[in-house]
């Protein structure tokens, strides 16, 4: 019994680290799910938009002296606006074509965006120091120490995921979104400007990615490839949860982060692979995903 407790205490940091990663998976796959549901576009630029969120926060601080709290609102707004322009100027022209074209276009956008940032800022990371006040949230239980900022990330990510879910499932705007996901033409024939809704939905999904990026900035170094590293796992999460399922993407994101953490304790070499093994199993047994509608 004593042994077990001791083991658990050793395992805690890894598992919590996993859950924090899970919070990012949840935020990112949630944005992907919202975009895919409404626009039928697999947004491969999501990782680049996450990175832009982190970079905008860093630039706001480095060049304008604007700190973390304003950046948490401003960066998603700015990057969301870039998303709105991308949708209007490029993505909206592809809706009549197969999914594949949207995927290729957004993949191309991701490469261009990352290239631009690499040219301007180099490949090495920029440090982003979070405000001191987060130290107040520091968690210390015995030998176990969790920096306050990570506690905040868990709280903020969970709150934003929940709020997004509530908006989609419980509000009038959300009912438009759900209905337009099913039958966009009919919803438009009821007098709702569906093309505008699609633009704003893309902007909102991108803003979610950028919000995750700002949250991530103080934890990971801010560098052009930070999104690319994350997004591969996030796409696996989306496939496991079921493309387009809102609640599914949130739950799956946290769950897989947790699972990665546990694997890190039990058999570390496997921790980077476990998500993809699960993805393969899910694809073979439930191709629509755990929460997807077949």
């Amino acid at each position: 019994m004593e042994d077990l407790l001791f083991e658990l205490q050793l395992a805690m940091p890894q598992v919590i680290l996993g859950v924090i990663n899970g919070a990012f998976y949840a935020l990112l796959s949630l944005g992907l799910a919202v975009i895919f549901g409404m626009l039928n576009v697999i947004n491969f630029a999501h990782g680049a938009q996450f990175m832009m969120g982190a970079f905008v926060a860093w630039m706001l601080l480095a060049f304008l002296g604007i700190g973390y709290w304003p950046a948490l609102i401003l960066a998603p707004l700015i990057v969301g606006l870039v998303g709105v322009l991308m949708e209007r100027l490029m993505i909206s022209r592809l809706y009549k074509l197969d999914h594949l074209y949207g995927l290729l276009l957004t993949f191309g956008c991701a490469l261009v965006i990352e290239g631009l940032f690499r040219n301007n800022f180099g490949s090495s990371g920029q440090r982003y120091t979070p405000p001191r006040e987060f130290q107040a949230l520091n968690l210390e239980i015995g030998d176990f120490f969790l920096p306050g900022y990570r506690v905040w990330v868990l709280i903020a990510a969970t709150a934003v995921c929940l709020a997004t879910w509530l908006v989609i499932e419980k509000t009038k705007i959300g009912s438009y979104l759900r209905a337009a996901t099913e039958r966009p033409q009919l919803v438009q024939a009821f007098g709702i400007n569906v093309p505008l809704m699609m633009t704003l939905t893309y902007g909102a999904g991108v803003a979610l990615a950028a919000f995750a990026g700002v949250l991530a900035a103080p934890i990971y170094s801010v560098h052009p490839a930070m999104g690319a590293n994350f997004i591969i796992t996030v796409f696996a999460v989306v496939v496991i949860g079921g493309m387009g399922s809102i609640a599914g993407s949130i739950v799956t994101g946290f769950l897989l982060g947790f699972l990665q953490g546990v694997t890190e304790v039990v058999y570390p070499p496997f921790s980077q692979t476990v998500v993809f093994v699960i993805m393969a199993i899910v694809l073979l047994t439930r191709p629509a995903g755990l929460f997807g509608r077949a």
Partner: peptide, 19 residues
């Protein structure tokens, strides 16, 4: 008919905006 599966009856009923 175009009834939405992801909306309940009231949400379906209230969906079209009053113009």
């Amino acid at each position: 008919r175009g009834i939405f599966a992801s909306l309940d009856v009231t949400e379906n009923l209230m969906l079209p905006p009053v113009i």
